[in-house]
Design a protein around this nucleic acid. Structure first.
Lengths: 168, 168
DNA sequence: TCAAACTTTCAATATTTATTGAAAGATATT
DNA sequence: AATATCTTTCAATAAATATTGAAAGTTTGA
């Protein structure tokens, strides 16, 4: 396979995977493009390569900065901004985990904890079933949360290495 | 908080969480409804409670069956079908992990492995950067895949318990 | 101060995704 | 075999989400 085709395929696959997991397709594609690019790119270059509008490129690049996945670079003597992606995959994974935990997992955990306190008749199956489901989910979500917390602090080799040793 | 309100909030939160993670909001809501319901429900009841159309209810219930999250029940003397959700949260988590692994992770893993074999000039930064990124992602994805595989076979207490013992 | 170079905004538009509901398809009952 | 009960399908429609591009905003340097 040609490098050019491989790049294309990678960008498309990354976009598809992103959209399947609730991440804007274009954002995932821009990230993919920068990830495989040895040099920082300008907005112009991103627009050109992915055939997207200026507005779209601008918003998407800003979002990626907010996710902590890319950064702006400036070059002396130039006014243009360049964008460069963090290349360490484990750092990227942690960053994504961190953001999604904060944006999506934590609010749900908070609500679940509230819902657990609903009052009711212990004889009423409607009540007991609700309470049990909510409590169980809350417990599991707490476990997931702790595991993510551990992941955020850990080195890749340590994290996976230790899990594997354990489960062999 | 009233039970009725708590139920409502739970269903909404579950729907929102689902949609943030690429799962149809209605599907997540129907699942939530059945999860907190002590009895199996009919299509009619699901339509009524969530205010959705017959077609939508039917398709959604079928999808949930395909995800292995609910099952049909029949009652002697009745022609109506009843739907009942698996209530064990760890089983649900495993089921979701299994399906998403199969549907989304595995195809990407396959492609990454192909892309890793792209030929090129080892002096060309375009080539080396691409190759390194793809290889690194592939490695990480492989680790995730193995961990999920372990999770699929494990009991909840063992899985999380072991992780926690390790990371304390 | 002006204008060139670049970035940001956002209302209009397009695309994608989800939902409806009526009709067709099953299946059991008389 | 006709009818009643229930399920499934799918083209039309609606809703949600993403994208465009022109205009406004900002910064720099002549």
């Amino acid at each position: 396979m040609e490098l050019a085709e491989a790049k294309q395929r990678f960008i498309e696959a990354w976009g598809k995977l992103g959209s399947e997991w609730g991440i804007n397709r274009t954002m995932a594609q821009v990230h993919a493009l920068l990830l495989i690019s040895p040099e920082a790119l300008t907005t112009e270059q991103v627009m050109e390569q992915l055939q997207i509008s200026r507005g779209n490129a601008n918003m998407t690049l800003r979002d990626l900065i907010n996710w902590g996945l890319i950064e702006k670079q400036h070059r002396s003597g130039e006014r243009k901004e360049y964008f460069f992606a963090e290349k360490d995959v484990w750092t990227i994974a942690r960053q994504v985990a961190k953001e999604r935990k904060r944006r999506e997992l934590e609010p749900v955990l908070k609500l679940l904890t509230q819902l657990q306190e609903v009052e009711g008749d212990a004889q009423d199956p409607e009540y007991t079933t609700f309470k049990k489901s909510v409590t169980d989910i809350n417990k599991l979500a707490g476990n997931v949360d702790s595991t993510l917390e551990t992941m955020l602090k850990a080195e890749e080799n340590w994290f996976f290495g230790s899990i594997f040793k354990l489960f062999k």
